[in-house]
Computed example of a mutant assay.
Amino acid sequence: MRDNKRAERVETINKLIEKVASCGRNFFLKRNGICRFELINGKPRYIDTYNNETIYPYGERDGKFNGGSTLWELIKEFRAFIIDGEQLEYSGLYVPYWGYPQEDMNLIREFAKNIGYLK
């Protein structure tokens, strides 16, 4: 049962990642496709398609992750959502440092609300 719920939340997060990848600066869109989460042995892992690394998104960034600290914190936030399923009132999606046009950020946030990620 727990893994079924986590699998559903992985799908939710992957949809959100696809939305982010389709807007603005195309974060999560790398040379080998769109990054994603997968459940490996029941645990969420981030698949970075830039270097085809499977990353455990917890704690400090390691050398496997190709991205900045704001994106790293968002990925850790995604992992937490996959595990506990709690909708967020505040999220890294509200951080103003993305360099995305405001209209794209509004679209991403609205999408995140519609799929159950944000309250």
Rank of each mutant, 00 (worst) to 15 (best):
G92P: 07
Y94F: 11
G33E: 04
G63F: 13
P96H: 02
E11W: 04
D84E: 14
R9F: 08
E103S: 05
P44Y: 01
Y58P: 08
I108S: 13
N106F: 10
P44S: 05
K30S: 04
P101N: 09
Y100R: 07
K30R: 15
N32K: 04
K30N: 07
S22H: 04
A7H: 02
G24E: 03
K43P: 05
E89H: 06
I115D: 13
N4C: 04
M1V: 10
F81H: 01
A21D: 13
S91M: 07
Y90M: 06
D3G: 08
R6D: 13
C35S: 08
G92M: 15
E73M: 01
T49I: 00
Y100P: 07
D48T: 00
Y56L: 04
P44L: 05
S91T: 12
I55G: 12
G85T: 05
N52D: 10
I83M: 11
I115Y: 10
N26V: 07
L93T: 07
V20E: 14
K64Y: 06
Y97A: 08
K64H: 09
Y46D: 08
P57V: 03
L29A: 06
I75Y: 11
A21L: 06
E73P: 01
S69P: 12
N114T: 06
G42T: 04
E38H: 04
A112D: 06
K5Q: 10
L74F: 09
W72H: 12
E73H: 00
I17D: 08
N51A: 08
L16E: 12
R6E: 15
Y117Q: 08
